[in-house]
Design a binder for these strands. Structure first.
Length: 632
RNA sequence: GGGCCCGUAGCCCAGCACGGAUCAGGGCGUCAGCCUCCGAAGCUGAAGCGCGAAAGCUCAGAGACCGUGGGUUCGAAUCCCACCGGGCCCGCCA
């Protein structure tokens, strides 16, 4: 996109000016000025030069400015160069030309900033919901962060593997098997209740309660766990079936939210792959793991934590591996420090985003390959930061630099507001409560989506009285997804979200529906016009209103925010950009007539601006998984 | 005891990685407006006056000493240190 080209030109011009004036060591860096009246890009280099040269910042700005202006004559997009007495050199776009090229690249060449060349292989793991319950809003935060990152990385040209890890052999799965096999819960959910909701809301919470009342039941859990571990036998088969059923129900919610995956990684297969044994043997040879013969960890294999000087048990005294020891081989497989033991088969073709594969252990390799990525990103909440650091440290032992290729994208949890907790029947002490699957204190994703959809239906009907029910329902569903995804993405991952159900049911202001609405507004103009979107140097020169210039500039900056999103693993940058672009559009919309414009040339130029900016908006929305509709 | 994260208007958040320009940007809520004009899921506007030495108070009505205190710097919301408040992690659970 064009703004980065402009920036590159400015940097070149500035560097040239600095060089010619003898400021050899000065760095030619530019930034967006705080205010449009200062131009489109600015450099504070004179202020920094003032100190070492003893000259006044304003004088240096004048000196650099006039030299830069001279050099800028040959450039494509640099218009004016204006020194500021405070010690800044301000650069303005050569506007008509910039706009014409910008519109042309967006509409004619469909250049929305995506990098075309093949990038690195990036494995992104997200969602990872235990297959014993339905997704709650905390899981949705994970999914939205991960899925948006997948989209952004693909946009940036990376070859992404979207991975979803299924913990099919853990205690949480065992718990519901205990419920079905030993506590007599019916296999089938009551009519109208989704299977994963049934397992989570009814079976899991009640089994947890039953443990408290009858401690001997815990023995049943370990029995089930041992059976699952064996990988064969009736209980193991039964568990397999249950897990697949719950997973199918969970995936339908994930797909509903617009997420899709390339591969399912089963914990049971990682355990049975023998990868851990290999790694463990190597760690022993490297003397990285130690066998403790005394102390609290007597009889265990431990690894040292270099940060705290403490040690972490990886193999229990009974010889079984702990949780983190299952994560290590998975991580090693992702970044290719261990051979690939898996085959891959199609798991589902129903997925909206394309074929979903599953690992297999039957030795057949198939056509597709996974693992061995250049970069692995794990979207996991912040409570696991410590363990993720250990995993990275272990990888580093196998290959220098591996810990820089294995990144933990942590995020804070979603908790519930006092009010929402109280609506669920929980009276709490503070202002918010952490969710708990065991206690049944959570809000399911589908519940929220359904409520959002219900509201959206009312709003959509009001505006589209003659539309059929099916159309309204489709739009309402899209609005619901937009609202939820945007709500959970826009906030910084490091900040806890206190979720309030009533507050979430809003479609005004800085929300996903606002983006959808803005896009629909833009398409409406194009749908109603007698003109044709087109702009040339002559008509572009007529687009002099500040709202037109601001919109034209903003629409050329999607790739900047996407680059940031990729670099910092923070897709909210794109969400923020989408919102800014929408604001710029609405500002334009309110103050600049398009189809009412009597001058056809000017009208068409404005149409071109509307067309191009709405395409960019749609692309930004796509990157964060906010649905795009021509009308809502 | 050790470690990680958060603290910006009544409320919720941007800005912090790379320190810079006059008013530190949005949103929610509040008040007042705008649909004979391309979609109102939108947009526009919103602060002082009086009394008092002052804290403050009255009528009002929009809102911010960037948690506090030091330091670095020509310049700090941004970097460093300490402290305060909140959350989380440090298990032979996952």
């Amino acid at each position: 996109m064009k703004f980065l080209e402009f920036q590159a030109e400015v940097e070149e011009v500035l560097a040239g000016a600095l060089h010619e004036l003898g400021y050899k060591k000065a760095v030619a860096d530019v930034d967006l000025p705080p205010n449009d009246s200062y131009g489109d890009l600015a450099s504070a280099v004179p202020i920094r030069l003032a100190k070492e040269t003893g000259k006044k910042p304003g004088d240096i700005a004048v000196e650099i400015g006039s030299k830069a202006m001279e050099l800028a004559k040959k450039s494509k997009y640099v218009g004016a160069v204006v020194p500021h007495k405070g010690g800044y050199v301000n650069f303005s776009l050569s506007y008509p030309r910039f706009l014409v090229d910008s519109v042309a690249s967006i509409t004619a060449s469909n250049d929305l900033g995506a990098v075309r060349e093949r990038g690195e292989v990036v494995a992104i793991e997200h969602t990872n919901v235990n297959p014993n319950k339905a997704l709650h809003i905390g899981h949705v935060r994970n999914l939205v962060l991960g899925d948006s990152l997948v989209r952004v990385m693909r946009y940036l040209g990376q070859q992404v593997q979207a991975l979803n890890y299924v913990d099919d052999s853990g205690a949480q799965v065992a718990d519901i098997v205990v419920g079905f096999r030993f506590l007599g819960f019916p296999d089938e959910a009551p009519p109208g209740v989704k299977y994963d909701v049934y397992c989570g809301d009814q079976v899991y919470t009640k089994v947890t309660k039953a443990y408290e009342q009858d401690p001997t039941l815990k023995a049943k859990q370990s029995l089930v766990l041992r059976e699952i571990e064996k990988g064969e036998g009736e209980i193991s088969e039964y568990t397999r079936k249950i897990v697949r059923r719950i997973l199918a129900a969970q995936l339908s919610t994930c797909w509903r939210l617009g997420a899709s995956y390339d591969l399912l990684n089963w914990e049971s297969q990682i355990v049975h792959s023998g990868m851990w044994e290999k790694i463990f043997e190597s760690l022993k040879k490297m003397k990285y793991v130690k066998f403790q013969t005394e102390g609290d960890n007597k009889g265990c294999w431990v690894i040292p934590d270099p940060d705290t000087g403490e040690e972490k048990v990886v193999v229990r005294s009974d010889g079984t591996a702990v949780y983190v020891a299952k994560d290590i081989p998975y991580a090693a497989w992702k970044v290719g420090v261990i051979g690939d033991p898996f085959g891959y088969e199609e798991y589902s073709k129903d997925q909206p985003g394309g074929v979903l594969y599953s690992t297999t252990m039957d030795g057949k390799k198939g056509k597709v390959r996974f693992g061995g990525a250049d970069l692995a990103v794990s979207v996991i909440d912040t409570r696991q930061s410590y363990l993720q650091r250990i995993v990275a440290k272990v990888l580093e032992e196998f290959r220098e630099g591996a810990s820089r290729k294995y990144l933990h994208r942590s995020y804070e949890v979603v908790s519930l507001s006092k009010k929402t907790a109280s609506q669920l029947g929980f009276e709490i002490e503070g202002e918010f409560a952490h969710m708990s699957g065991r206690k049944g204190l959570y809000v399911n994703a589908d519940t929220v989506l359904d409520k959002l959809k219900e509201r959206a239906k009312v709003e959509t009907k009001k505006r589209n009285l003659s539309e059929a029910e099916g159309w309204v329902s489709d739009v309402a569903e899209a609005v619901a997804v937009a609202a939820l995804r945007y709500e959970l993405l826009k906030q910084d991952p490091d900040k806890m979200i206190v979720f309030d159900l009533d507050d979430a049911l809003k479609f005004q202001g800085d929300t996903g529906p606002y983006l959808m609405y803005t896009y629909a507004r833009a398409r409406r103009i194009l749908g109603k016009t007698e003109g044709k979107p087109r702009v040339d140097a002559g008509s572009a020169a007529k687009l002099t209103k500040p709202q037109e210039r601001a919109l034209g500039k903003k629409m050329s900056m999607l790739d900047i925010s996407a680059n940031d999103a990729g670099e910092f693993l923070s897709p909210k940058e794109v969400a923020r950009y989408a919102h800014e672009l929408a604001v710029a559009f609405n500002d334009f919309y309110e103050s600049v007539p398009v189809n009412q414009e009597p001058d056809p040339e000017l009208r068409d130029a404005r149409l071109a601006l509307v067309d191009a900016s709405s395409r960019v908006l749609a692309e930004a929305m796509r990157l964060i998984g906010v649905p795009v509709r021509d009308r809502i």
